[in-house]
Amino acid sequence: MVNGFRPRTLREALQILSANNCTVMAGGTDLMVQRARGFSIRPDFDRPLVFIEPLEELKHSVRENGTLHLGPCMTLSDLLRHPAVPDPLKEIIGMMASPPTRNMATLGGNICNASPAGDTLPWLYAMNAKLKLQSAEKERIVAIEDFITGPKKTILQSDELLTGILVPDTRFHLNRYRKLGQRKGMSLTKASFLGMAEISGNTVTDIRIALGSVAPRIVRAAEIERSMLGRYVGDINAAAAVITERYQPLITPIDDARSTAMYRKKVSLDLIRQFLETLSGSPGTGTKSE
């Protein structure tokens, strides 16, 4: 028989976690599927559950000193409605799951589940998001790419909770997102592409590219991005194929029930190339988010 804890405050939750070996449950939309056992019987939980989704402290979102703070227990539906949440993230969330699932699923759950198909991850990687991890004793802040160490693997300790998501409030005038699924709605991602760029005059001042579901972790190559900074847009357009080629070794997808490695690889490279080929300084030329 598995017990559950319903802490009323974050402090209480952290105390429970330091005294017991527990499984943290937020919206449960990953956990309940992963642990399902069969029709009409209880799921397979081996440790007591701590239900954190109701914790008000983890549901706030504010913009402060150039940083956007997102509460990990905000549901995807909360985020869609929240004025502080930037449009590119809303666009991504709008294509996740279905409204009923979005009413339950949390941002923190998507991060801590650490699936290469987690749809908010490419944006968080591209934005250089940092995560606040808290236990009863200590608190640490880590970059998202250091948090996730592999598919379904993170550095989270058993007494820790993800308590804050800190996103530098950077705006890009070019945003392009593509999610490829097996169908148009309610589909897990077989490959995703996020491209963001800031262009001043005709010079690239900032550019970020992140890809989901095409490698054990989210693909983002800071070095390739840096190599494009300060260059003329026209140069990037012309060199698109060459730059794309540099992503080739980073994209290492698999064959599975939803797609093939070949398809995932070719489409992601084509999406990168298309983004670079059509980058442009003047607004409204098709590189806006679709």
Binding site: S98, Q182, R183, M186, A257
Partner: peptide, 27 residues
């Protein structure tokens, strides 16, 4: 279009509704 179901070594590769897709209202 979307309803791909393959059998490999006698085992269905798309054995649940996460992997086997039928059209939704969006499709």
């Amino acid at each position: 279009t979307v309803e791909l179901m393959e059998s490999e070594g006698g085992k269905l590769k798309q054995g649940n509704l996460t992997d086997y897709k039928i059209p939704t209202s969006m499709d």
